[in-house]
Design a protein around this nucleic acid. Structure first.
Lengths: 340, 340
DNA sequence: GTGAAAGCGCTAACAT
DNA sequence: ATGTTAGCGCTTTCAC
């Protein structure tokens, strides 16, 4: 169907090998022959088959990337970082949206191995029912390097780049305390997710270090979705012993939280203070001054990809590397304690 | 390196062909042999090579998808739609973020043809410097079906699924007029983009049909980016003969527009009315009642993918199909004309 | 400097 | 019901 290397060879009056040589700049080819071949290639509009090449070289130059939700801008930014580095190294990437679903994740993983990708960057969905990490482990044993980004799977023996979630939320909550807040609520993520758990730990730690007793009634177990942020904020706003501040564990829940606050006609920070984990671009754009803990998304992607590329080098002995990035606390005023 | 079909054959004491048969459920295999083979496959942890299969069948079952910006939730949703349908048909997709950049787009296109993808869904970046449509045309002539989503390239001879931008903005602007607005500003997109142009046309048409003279001073030529929305809204708000309403041609510029409005301490719709093209989830979430023209993103993706799959069928004669979806006008109150 | 030929892992006639 | 074999398009070793 398509024009192949042998069509080129025939038309140029040389052998396959010679064509291949000019294609790959390998071995010696007389300048004259080279030019003739190049011309024929142009003329016939030849495009080499990556498939055939991959098969022949047992090397695809393709990497797999798994994200839980492609419509979440945070992941979008991570992907930007990943693509950028991949591009520079002329690596292809196959991107899979796992829809935050272990089954889809597994299906994608299988598809990727069939495609003989040479490495995987994965942003896992959660740690629950953790059968996929077994599968990942198998892949790694088969020689496919795995790099985790912003999450943890069961076997911590994978390399990865993470955000220091504990420190991030510790800083946020401590800031609230220093502002004078004493009753600080938290809306957490699912407790089977490492990042969510760590954010909770940071919260507890900050209270403890500042001699504030944690109160169960101020702890709301959310699930990283808008709805839970909305629902629990509503509850919080109606408490008789209402906390003066809320620490919300991720961006989506913060949106829900804000909705509840606006609906109830409460003002930030006059009526209630909040700090969010994760930046929400839009808020800044709209001039809504919500303070947040900023996980470095693009950076996460870039570093993850660089780690992966390094471990692609077969010669290098594979040691497990872990890099943890410290998130930055960005204060916008929503953390302030106003006399109420 | 990896275990191959012949390893399986050897260990199971059969020939390659037989193994291939059970792998593909083709031809007859004795139940007993089948089971034995299946067992060996499990045991050796065999994963077929899609690469080898593709080469052998001259068929990759892989599609290419090009998006201008993966961090834009609108495209994220289109991708969700695409993935969903692809999944159901067991088609793989390679997704490329072109960064709204013709060169990257071209590079991705080349990469995709090397990968021998069997079809392409493309959301083009703009119509400007339109050399890629030539390339696309070449690809199509080579038998690779192309489906356009929400954009137009130079050669309108491609199939595609679009949004009726003219009608969308016509409805929006007419609504403003019916509300009593007479001075209606527009912030457009770049005039080399078909959708942007059409949205402008809808605006003009609505004015004309309602016997309102279009005033040049109310037309602001933006570029679909936040900054331009911000900048022109600032200008608008400072005009001595200030319009009572703004029609903003896309979501990003609307964000900039809102920022300018809030910064100036203007109220919607008390001080100024607006309608946006494109839904912005966050606004609803936050309880900001901005009316908008809603392009059906997920639907766009699903339909686009279905069209592509249809034209994958080689038997089918390839006719150019165009489907245009009518966007829905969602009124939230920001269009109201309040006595000022 | 160039060519011949084996091989990458699999499929699909064609035999048996 | 199963085996043999010729490709798929390319790379690479070994000859010449």
């Amino acid at each position: 169907m398509a024009v192949t290397i042998s069509d080129i060879a025939k038309k140029a009056g040389v052998s396959l090998a010679t064509v291949s040589r000019v294609l790959n700049d390998s071995g010696y080819v007389k300048e004259e022959t080279r030019e003739r071949i190049l011309e024929v290639i142009k003329e016939l509009n030849y495009t080499p088959s990556a498939i055939a090449r991959s098969l022949s070289k047992s090397k695809t130059n393709t990497l797999g990337v798994l994200v839980p939700d492609i419509t979440n801008p945070f992941f979008g930014e991570v992907i930007k970082g990943i693509s950028q580095i991949a591009d520079e190294s002329n690596l292809n990437i196959i991107l899979c949206d796992t829809d935050d679903n272990k089954d889809k994740e597994l299906k994608s993983l299988k598809m990727l191995t069939e495609q003989r990708i040479q490495g995987i960057i994965i942003m896992p969905t959660s740690v629950e029912d953790d059968f996929n990490s077994e599968y990942l482990k198998t892949l790694e044993n088969m020689g496919i390097p795995i790099v985790l980004v912003d999450g943890h799977v069961k076997y911590s023996s994978f390399s990865g780049v993470f955000v220091d979630n504990i420190k991030g939320s510790y800083d946020a909550v401590e800031t609230l305390i220093k502002e004078g807040h004493e009753k600080i609520a938290i809306i957490t993520g699912r407790m089977n997710s490492k990042p969510a758990k760590d954010r909770f730990i940071g919260y507890k730690k900050a209270l403890m270090m500042n001699n504030i007793e944690m109160e169960d009634k101020y702890v709301f177990y959310g699930d990283y979705r808008q709805e839970s942020g909305y629902k629990y904020t509503k509850e919080i706003l109606e408490m008789e012993d209402r906390p003066s501040a809320i620490f919300v564990s991720n961006n989506m829940m913060t949106l829900g939280c804000l909705k509840a606050i606006f609906e109830g006609n409460f003002k930030i920070p006059e009526d209630i203070s909040i700090i969010s984990f994760d930046r929400i671009d839009i808020l800044d754009t709209l001039g809504l001054n919500v303070s947040y803990v900023n996980g470095p998304s693009v950076e996460l992607g870039k570093i993850g990809m660089k780690m992966l590329i390094e471990s692609l080098d077969e010669n290098e002995l594979k040691e497990v590397k872990n890099i943890t990035l410290i998130p930055e606390l960005v204060l916008r005023g929503s953390e302030k304690l106003i006399k109420r």
